[in-house]
C-alpha cells in the first residue's frame, strides 16, 4: 500500500550497483522447486532475454522480482531495495493470455491503467495522463485504434496495447513475459524498436523469450535458466552451444565439474 501512495516521479537512487541482485534464491510451488539456488545479477541499461525450456521458472523469476512470490530461501534486491519497495520503478507486461479480452474497455482505457501508479488513491487520470497514454500508443503505432474495444484487436495489436501500457508507466525497469508470443512479424519489429528505444534511454529491459534464433539479433544480454541459473552475461560470451545444451538438457552444469 505504501508503494502505491508514494510519489513515483523520483528516479531510483543512482549508484554503480546492479539493478537486480539475486543470491541463493530458491522458490517452491508446493513441493516442486521452480527456482533452485539461483545467483543472478542484472546491470543497469541492458536489454536482456531470459530463455529456457518450459517450466524453467522464467515467469516465476519475473514474479519474484516484483515481490509477488515469496522465496523459501535466498535474497533478492531491486534497485538496492526489497522488491515490494521497488515496484514504483518497475513496469510489468504479463502474458497476453492472462486477461479477458472481452472486458468492456477501449484501448485507451487499458493504456491509461499504466498511469494509475502515478496517481495514488482516489485521483482520476487527467489530461496529462491521457496525453502520455496517447504518446505511448503512438510509440507502438496504435493511436488510430485508441477508441477501439479491446476485444476487436488482433493478437499483435493486443500485445502492442500491453507494451504501451507499460510505456505509459514511465518506469526504469521493464519486465515482459513473452511479448512476442503469437504476434505477427510487423508487430515483432515494431516492439523490438520500442525495446531498443528504452535501452537507448538508459532503461533496463528483461524479456522472457522463446525464440532462440532471434536472441543474438534482438538482445545484448541473455540469461539461460532452467530451474537453476545456468549462465548469464553478454550474448557474445554466454550464448554458446555448450551453455544452451546445459540449459535444454543432455548435460548438467554444476555436478559434472
Amino acid at each position: 500500500m505504501a508503494t502505491f501512495l508514494s510519489a513515483r516521479h523520483e528516479p531510483p537512487a543512482p549508484g554503480d550497483g546492479p539493478v537486480i541482485k539475486v543470491t541463493d534464491l530458491t522458490v517452491m510451488y508446493g513441493d516442486r522447486p521452480v527456482l533452485w539456488d539461483v545467483d543472478w545479477e542484472v546491470p543497469a541499461g541492458v536489454l536482456m532475454a531470459v530463455v529456457g525450456p518450459n517450466g524453467a521458472g522464467k515467469t516465476t523469476m519475473l514474479r519474484t522480482i516484483l515481490g509477488l512470490v515469496r522465496p523459501v530461501a535466498g535474497s533478492i534486491t531491486v534497485f538496492g531495495r526489497p522488491p515490494a519497495e521497488a515496484r514504483r520503478w518497475i513496469a510489468y507486461v504479463p502474458q497476453r493470455t492472462a486477461v479477458d479480452w472481452d472486458f468492456p474497455a477501449t484501448v485507451l482505457d487499458v493504456v491509461l491503467m499504466g498511469r494509475y501508479s502515478h496517481l495514488g488513491w482516489v485521483r482520476r487520470p487527467g489530461a496529462q495522463d491521457r496525453e502520455r497514454a496517447l504518446e505511448a500508443l503512438a510509440q507502438v503505432g496504435m493511436v488510430h485504434l485508441a477508441h477501439r474495444q479491446i476485444g476487436q484487436l488482433s493478437v499483435g495489436q493486443q500485445q502492442r496495447v500491453f507494451v504501451a501500457r507499460a510505456l505509459a508507466q514511465d518506469a526504469w525497469l521493464y519486465l515482459m513475459d513473452e511479448p512476442f508470443a503469437g504476434v505477427d512479424a510487423t508487430t515483432e519489429q515494431a516492439l523490438i524498436e520500442v525495446l531498443r528505444g528504452l535501452k537507448a534511454a538508459g532503461r533496463t529491459v528483461i524479456v522472457v523469450h522463446h525464440d532462440l534464433q532471434t536472441v543474438p539479433l534482438y538482445f545484448d544480454w541473455v540469461t539461460l535458466l532452467n530451474v537453476r541459473c545456468v549462465a548469464w552475461g553478454p550474448v557474445t560470451t554466454v550464448f554458446t552451444a555448450d551453455y544452451l545444451r546445459q540449459t535444454y538438457g543432455e548435460r548438467a552444469g554444476i555436478l559434472s565439474g
Partner: peptide, 23 residues
C-alpha cells in the same frame, strides 16, 4: 466511486494490479 480505478484494474488484470503495488 472512490476506488473506481482500483476496482477496474483489479477486475481486468489482477496480476498487473499487484505488480503496480496495489494491495
Amino acid at each position: 466511486f472512490l476506488f473506481w480505478k482500483e476496482f477496474k484494474v483489479l477486475a481486468f488484470d489482477p496480476a498487473f494490479a499487484a505488480a503496480m503495488g496495489l494491495p
